[in-house]
Amino acid sequence: MLEKMIFGRYIPGDSFIHRLDARAKLIFVFLFIMVVFIANNWITYGILLLFTFLIIRLSKIRLYFLINGLKPVVFLIIFTFLLHLFFTREGPIIFDWKFITIYEEGLKQGIFISIRFTVLVVLTSILTLTTTPISITDALEILLNPLKKWKLPVHELALMMSISLRFIPTLMDETDKIMKAQMARGSDMTTGSMKERMNAIVPLLIPLFVSAFKRAEDLATAMEVRGYKGGEGRTRYRKLEWVTRDTLIILSLVVLAAILVYLRN
């Protein structure tokens, strides 16, 4: 099931979006979240969709991937759509059958919210699909660097994040392996009452914790042996480079925002 998730995974590539500086992409997504809220009528939402579509094209990620990856959140989108559809009571009635009454405004709001939701999920997915986790971590470390003044341990947080990301696949494999080993010993995690299922998780969790602690200990030793003693006096192997295209992509957002403001009600 987890293997179908695309959110948070990286697909290697060499598109315009792939080559953008991770900082540019982070700032872009951050600003985009705000820009989305400017839209409030058919034309502005239409432009948002168009813009998103353009970004998808630029990332050269197959639409099929994205749609597949949206599956886990489709339920949420439908749910919010229905919520607005049934509970907004404004404008003329467009449908009335027994106890179901749908107003025009409800349909409109439902569609708008769904679009908003979809473009946000799609663009955030594109960020993670086209950027290696390590670049995202690096970008975060640099962008958050000013916060060091307020004693925020930015370097440590970034290192923690990058190590966690690095170990996700390892721990997923491990979980799969232990789960199978216990299933082979007759443990059943998929059927039975809630209580039975909770009990069946113990034989999975304990070995997983034991192994995670062992790994953490080994890793700490390995890091110490390789001379790690905190962020002080360290140099950086990863360098991010901000070039014209990075400025351009941020500018494109500003232009988008301006157009939306002009065309909104």
Partner: peptide, 12 residues
């Protein structure tokens, strides 16, 4: 019965 590689990892 399956004895997996490094089966001690399943002890709990």
């Amino acid at each position: 019965g399956i004895v997996f590689q490094f089966p001690e990892h399943q002890l709990f």
